[in-house]
Every structure is written in C-alpha cells, then in structure tokens.
Design a protein around this nucleic acid. Structure first.
Length: 263
DNA sequence: ATGGCCAACCGTGTTGGA
C-alpha cells in the first residue's frame, strides 16, 4: 500500500503533471492540496480514466483538498464539522482544508494547514487556532474504528531547523516560529510519528522551494509537507521518500510529492 | 538584498501563497 501527498497549486493548471505522475507512480491513495477549484469544475474524469475515484472538497480560487483513490473509500467526510460537530467546528469549515476517508484498516486524513501569512497577523492567529481544532478532530478520530491514522498534508510548519535550508532568523519567519512549532507539536503529542524521519535523519531533504528566489536550483527549500502515522501503522512503514522529479518540470508546483509505503 | 514568482479572478491590478 502506497499513500502520497502533494500540494499541486491548482489542479487545473497541474492536471497533466498529476495524471502523468500517477501513471508512473501508481499509489493507492493520492492526497492533493490547493486544488483551487469548486467541486463542479474539478477534473474528475481524467482520474477515472486512470482507474481512480476522486473525493473532493474545493472552493473558488483558494485552498481545496482531494483524495484520489484506486479502491473506493468509505466514511468519507469533508471538514471538521462531521466529526466534531458544528459548535466546535465553528467557521473553520468555510475554508476547504480537510477531507478524510477509510481504506481497509486505515483512515487517511488529508489536510491543508493555513499558511499564516505573516507572524502576528490575523491569519497567523487563525493558523494557531486551526491547529488547536485539528488536535480535537484527530483525537476524536483516534477513538473511532479504524484507529490507524495516516495523516497527510501541507502542514506549513517546519518542525526542526534541519527541515530548513537556512534556519537563520527562522524565529521571525512564517512556518518556523516557536508558536507554530509548539502548536503542531501539541497535535503530534496525540502519538503521531513523522514517518519520513523513520528512514532519513539528516537534513537537506525538502518538499517546498520558493518560486521567487529560484530556490530549487540551489536546493534552498523547506520540509513542510508531512505524513504522520499512528504507532502501529508506523511499524508497518517500509519506506518514505520525497519525489523531486515533478519539481524539475516546466511550470511545476512549488511543492513535491511525499510518499509512504506500508506493509 | 524584505526583492523575486505563480495562480485565480473579470483584471490591465489585487489577493494569497509560503
């Protein structure tokens, strides 16, 4: 079983690259973020042609997540509210950032964590609050069956300095402030394991490179796309990699896919 | 070096990304 996560920065712009990648890398489930399209306009047919089902939760212009699965998923739900209830979910489902579904004995959770814009901005506060709600959401899922969670997504947080090409000044930079790290760490304290780090301990491995600074050429990147597993599932993981090949293409997403292989 | 690039929108600039 292979599960992958990829922030594609618009599924319509990246459609050919994503379907090509899927043909070359026939994973069982592909989690997409930043699809940037309403559900009515999501290109489902090209995925069905490849033998995949698409489960989507999108909005106009921004955000948007999708689960592309070879086998039909069960218990698919979009947003926090179906799991947490309307009261706790509040307005957080206005932005389409959460979708989950079950395949076999694994629940896949696909997340697009808010970026946060700038430190101390309104969006930054939103990001920190969103991560508190996420903890509640995942805690709730842990109490359901199956309790094996594979949590994939663009987390917009680099937890360690080795996840950043140049950590100097990171305390004041979005994605690496102490508050963001603490907020994500609090989520992970539910008992979640960064599966990429099960296999790779050194730095220099990234999943996002800024378009603007030509960061990919010099491998000036950040590792902000993650796959977190519950312990039993982590024991079944035999590999986890970042595929930088699509980032080398013309007109690429600024993120690369991250993949986990499970027994 | 606080710039740079990219995508969506009904747009000839603005917003958001990270």
């Amino acid at each position: 079983m292979k599960i992958a996560t990829w922030n594609v920065n618009s599924i319509r712009t990246r459609l050919e690259q994503v379907t090509n990648w899927l043909q070359e890398n026939p994973v069982d489930v592909l989690c997409l973020q930043e699809t940037k399209v309403v559900d009515e306009l999501f290109p489902i047919a090209p995925f069905e042609t490849l033998g995949y089902q698409a489960y989507i939760s999108g909005q106009k212009s921004y955000n948007g997540v999708a689960l592309i699965s070879r086998q039909p998923l069960t218990e698919v739900s979009q947003g926090f509210a179906p799991i947490l209830g309307e009261n706790i979910a509040g307005n957080f489902d206005e932005q389409k950032r959460v979708i989950t579904g079950v395949i076999g004995d694994i629940r896949v959770v696909n997340l697009y964590v808010p970026n946060g814009s700038a430190v101390a901005s309104e969006k930054y506060e939103y990001k920190l609050k969103w991560l508190i709600v996420l903890r509640e959401y995942l805690q709730n899922l842990l109490g359901k069956t199956p309790s094996n969670l594979c949590i994939c997504g663009d987390f917009n947080v680099a937890l360690e300095d080795i996840d950043i090409h140049n950590p100097k000044g990171r305390e004041t930079k979005i994605m690496a402030t102490d508050l963001e790290r603490q907020a994500l760490q609090t989520v992970l304290e539910l008992g979640l394991i960064d599966v990429f780090r099960k296999f790779t301990s050194e730095g220099g491995h990234y999943s996002w490179w800024d378009y603007r600074t030509g960061g990919f050429k010099g491998n000036r990147g950040w590792r902000i796309d993650h796959i977190y597993l519950t312990p039993g599932l982590s024991d079944r993981a035999t590999n986890s990699t970042i595929d930088t090949a699509p980032r080398k293409l013309t007109q690429p997403s600024d993120h690369a896919p991250v993949i986990v292989t499970l027994e």
